[in-house]
Amino acid sequence: MPEATYPPLDVLKAVADGVWIVDSGPLRALGIPLPVRMTVIRLRDGALWLHSPTRYDPRLHREIAALGPIRHLVAPNIAHWTYLKAWQDHCPEALTWAAPNLRRRGQVRRSGLRINRVLADAAPPDWEADLRQTVVPGGLSFREVGFFHDASRTLILTDLVLNLEPAKMPALVRPFLQLARMTTPHGQPPPYLRLVIKLRRRAAARAAAELIALKPERVIFAHGLWFAGDATARLRHALRWLGRFS
């Protein structure tokens, strides 16, 4: 069985000055083993910002805390919240920020997850000096918030781009993943998510155009091989299903 993830797992990996990732997983979705990734940013005030936290691990917690105080836990869309409760329990001083509509989900209410703030198009004062953000809308209450770290020219997404490596996937599902363009070099989200986002295609395309206009040097996302180089062109290619971008 191929290794779907990106070892070593559940450890910090430096990406740029003040930017780290944590690879974890795999998660299983529709029988597909998915690698999953958290991004950690150190803000200029020294506080740490955790985007889409992966599974809680005490050793990882200590490693992150050695960089500075964990102040922000971010659920960037309505699907990426599963591990937040454990991080909340171990980081009681951190604020939890969530994409619009997440708190409406019955699973979320039953989980006991505490949501302190809802993410908007404009970055809050807590990190506006470091990060810009854009809400990408869709139908059926879907929202994903993209973040741009100005200092490192890093764009941080979640499910808007999915770039699985065929060799890491089970042989039986490779043809489906490739046909669905969920693999390298296409980087598209699953067909059902594309349909959901296309329910608000015009607004989503405008938001995607804003992300491309940032001209990121790298694009990090939750699942698959992230864009470490030629990032703007690869992002444009991955989002072409939304239409043309000026």
Rank of each mutant, 00 (worst) to 15 (best):
M169K: 08
E144Y: 01
A75H: 03
I70M: 09
H61Q: 13
M182P: 05
T82E: 10
L157H: 08
P125S: 09
R37K: 01
P35L: 05
L211A: 03
C91P: 02
L179H: 12
T158M: 12
A222Q: 13
L48I: 06
R174Q: 15
P189Q: 03
M38K: 01
L242M: 04
R55E: 09
L157D: 10
R55F: 07
T183R: 01
A86N: 06
P100H: 11
M38S: 14
Q88D: 08
S24M: 02
R109K: 15
P53T: 05
D17I: 12
P2C: 12
G243V: 00
L179N: 06
K215S: 15
A203G: 02
E63F: 03
A98T: 10
G138V: 00
A98N: 09
Y6T: 12
R59N: 07
R240I: 01
G68Q: 06
D121A: 09
V196S: 00
A99Y: 01
L73I: 06
H72S: 07
A151V: 09
E3Y: 13
A79T: 04
W226E: 07
V36G: 08
T5Q: 13
R104A: 13
P100Q: 10
L9H: 14
A122E: 11
A120F: 11
Q107Y: 15
P2H: 09
S111L: 06
G25F: 01
A120H: 13
I78Q: 05
R62N: 08
A47Q: 11
V173E: 15
P8E: 12
E210H: 06
I70P: 03
L27K: 06
H237W: 00
R109E: 02
L27Q: 09
E165T: 14
H61A: 13
R55Q: 10
D230Q: 11
P69T: 04
V40S: 07
P33Q: 12
T154Y: 08
S52T: 02
I220V: 10
G243F: 00
R44G: 08
L211N: 01
A209N: 10
A151C: 07
V15I: 15
A79M: 05
S141M: 07
F148I: 04
L43M: 08
R62G: 13
I115K: 08
P76R: 01
D130R: 10
S246G: 14
F148W: 14
A203M: 04
P124H: 10
R194F: 00
W87T: 07
W87I: 05
A222D: 10
H72I: 05
W81H: 10
K13F: 15
W97A: 11
F221S: 05
L162G: 04
C91A: 11
R174K: 15
P58E: 08
Q107D: 14
I212W: 00
